[in-house]
């Protein structure tokens, strides 16, 4: 019975029409919220548009992109997070998962505790973290200097602010932990037993048995981590706002990326340009850049799915 629908050449077959019916909400959504915006983003990237007046400006927006230092700073910051935070989260998540799967007593309790921070609303978690690391009021600086370690002004020093965000990311590593735990439990126990008899130690077991089995999951976690990081917005925005002590009073203007644009991520700059400065055309240039980069990683991810969707056809 397999393949009967596909073998029929008629595109308007009952099967295809029925599928179309079921898919129609998503198809409409895809057209309205994906295809159309993408096309008009290209169009707007050649316009000056502040939501009131539209004026074609040729390549002006694209030229400005080349000269816009903040945009390049934002790219560098986003890259930093991709290169440092994403792998650290994956490693930490894997480590915690390894630990929890090996605990015989209390594994459930630990799993709950370790997963909990992943559920905390981003804004709430960020607020808590900034205050926790705030010099003068937070305990972390006091503890660090009490034991004689350097006590940086985490979110107030550009050399440390991204590390502060990384700490926040590690704290909410629970989702990765759960995925890795599931993958680790999938590794057949007999393999370990066989390896133990052969005298393979922990590290050898990990590289020769665990790693090959969980490789796809690891790859998946890395790529989705990268894509999530390309959208990194809330934590950086809230942390900068709170850490700068901006009071929204007359004359004190909040600049995203505090301190020294060190937490300015690409989506933040796009948002700033489009919805704070109303340089909509320029925001579209930035959007297309983001699209290009996100697509590269999406394609890598899609390779993982090659073969999926066909298995029962």
């Amino acid at each position: 019975m397999a393949g009967t629908a596909l073998s029929r050449p008629n595109p308007l077959s009952r099967g295809n029409l029925r599928a179309l019916l079921y898919l129609s909400p998503w198809l409409a959504g895809f057209a309205i919220f994906f295809v159309y915006p993408l096309v008009s983003t290209v169009y707007f990237s050649f316009q000056r548009y502040d939501l009131f007046t539209l004026e074609p400006v040729g390549l002006l927006n694209w030229e400005y992109f080349l000269k816009d230092q903040a945009a390049w700073t934002a790219i560098r910051n986003t890259l930093w997070l991709v290169v440092v935070m994403v792998p650290l989260r994956v490693l930490f998540g894997l480590g915690v998962a390894q630990l929890v799967t090996r605990l015989k007593a209390g594994a459930g309790v630990y799993r709950t505790i370790f997963y909990l921070p992943a559920l905390v609303p981003l804004v709430a978690g960020t607020l808590g973290f900034v205050f926790l690391l705030n010099p003068g009021t937070g305990p972390v600086q006091a503890i660090l200097s009490a034991v004689g370690l350097p006590a940086p002004d985490w979110f107030g020093d550009p050399a440390w602010s991204k590390w502060g965000l990384t700490l926040l990311g590690l704290w909410s590593v629970g989702d990765l932990m759960v995925i890795f735990m599931a993958a680790l439990l999938d590794v057949p126990k007999q393999l370990y037993e066989a390896a133990a008899i052969d005298g393979a130690n922990g590290w050898r077991q990990f590289t020769s048995i665990t790693l090959p089995v969980i490789r796809p999951v690891l790859m998946f976690a890395l790529v989705t981590g990268v894509i999530q990081t390309l959208q990194y917005f809330t934590q950086a925005e809230v942390a900068a706002r709170v850490a700068s002590g901006a009071t929204d009073s007359a004359g004190s203007v909040f600049t995203p990326g505090y301190p020294d644009q060190s937490t300015l991520t690409f989506p933040q700059w796009l948002f700033q340009q489009g919805f704070r400065d109303y340089a909509m055309g320029y925001a579209c240039v930035l959007a297309l850049m983001l699209f290009a980069v996100a697509m590269v990683f999406t394609l890598i991810l899609l390779r993982q799915f090659r073969g999926l969707g066909e298995e029962d056809v």
Binding site: L27, A28, F30, A31, I32, V35, Y36, V39, S40, Y43
Partner: peptide, 14 residues
Amino acid sequence: RLLFLSAALSIGAE
């Protein structure tokens, strides 16, 4: 073709 059509329609509307 359907996607292309809807895209073309939306651009017109735009």
